[in-house]
Amino acid sequence: MSLPVASPRMAFVAAETPSAQFARQRLADRYGATALSDANVIVALGGDGFMLECLHRFIDHPAPIYGMNRGTVGFLLNDFEENELPERIARAVMVSLTPLRMEAVTVTGQTVRALAINEVSLLRETRQAARLRIRIDDMVRLDELVCDGVLVCTPAGSTAYNLSAHGPILPMGANVLALTPISAFRPRRWRGAILPHSSRVSFEVMETGKRPVSAVADYTEVRDIAAVTVHEDPIAKLRMLFDREHHLEERILKEQFTP
């Protein structure tokens, strides 16, 4: 879907790196900078981490985000180019993302909620492996998983940490989530599961004192957890803009053919 405006009003935000700040100033001088409150497009300049920060920061802003790479990998970003920026934005493809909602309860009874655009991961905190019980929609599916960790990811996040943990790449629009173990020790051959996107995934930490576990939703970390629940948050829609020839669906598909 293309952006439904012929003349983008652009607000520029940038990471703190010199290259991103220089690019922001160049673009603002060339095209003029609109205040965030009046913008119908937010142009984000930085790397993938900064793009994730912007998606969280502007989750309630009505304008979609058009990112340009001033970082390293730039999987969630378009190539940087100063010329014809309004025209590129007007031709761009809109991608809507549905984040995950994490609810983590610590061993002291504190509840922490956070959103994750890529994944929610549980990770052991010490030298000893974590012991976890996994429920899907309140039904125990794995009574005991001994591992370094486990994660639930969205299609947009399936090529990130999930892929490094040998999880599956999920096409955009597939309406599924990936549940992927990280260095599973028992059951050693369990490779995870692909779940309907409506699933509610619950983790119970066993032996919390001896085997402490942390939970991370993108960059929000909660230490010493007792239980975590993860599910899609259909209300929190995120909108991104990609150049038509290099949109997110194409990038995810291409990853499946990368040696």
Rank of each mutant, 00 (worst) to 15 (best):
E84C: 10
E125Q: 10
H56F: 00
P18G: 01
A193Y: 09
E16W: 00
V73D: 04
R188P: 03
R239P: 05
D143S: 15
A104C: 09
D224T: 02
V230K: 02
A23G: 04
P168W: 13
V107I: 14
F185T: 03
R88A: 01
E53Q: 12
L145A: 01
R9E: 15
L97V: 08
A193N: 02
T34V: 14
F203L: 06
E125I: 00
D79Y: 03
T106M: 05
G74E: 08
A114L: 08
A14R: 04
A14L: 08
E245L: 07
R189P: 00
D143C: 11
L76F: 15
A226M: 09
Y219H: 13
L179H: 01
R131A: 14
E144I: 14
P64D: 00
Q21Y: 00
I182S: 07
T208Q: 14
R186A: 13
E119L: 03
P18S: 02
R91S: 09
R70G: 02
D38F: 08
E204G: 11
Y66V: 00
G209I: 02
A227P: 10
L45P: 15
R186D: 11
V205A: 06
I182L: 14
V201R: 05
D138N: 13
T108M: 10
P168G: 12
V5I: 13
P259A: 13
L145S: 02
V213D: 01
N69V: 04
F22A: 05
E207H: 09
G49C: 07
A116M: 08
R135S: 14
L163Y: 15
I89Q: 08
S2C: 11
A130L: 06
L163Q: 08
V228Q: 02
E125M: 12
L151G: 06
L241D: 03
R211L: 09
Q21K: 06
I225N: 10
G157H: 09
A116P: 12
V112A: 10
A20G: 04
S202D: 06
S19K: 13
M10C: 11
N78L: 01
D29I: 01
I194P: 03
M172N: 02
V201I: 15
A90H: 14
H61K: 14
S37V: 15
A11R: 05
I182K: 08
K254P: 00
H56N: 08
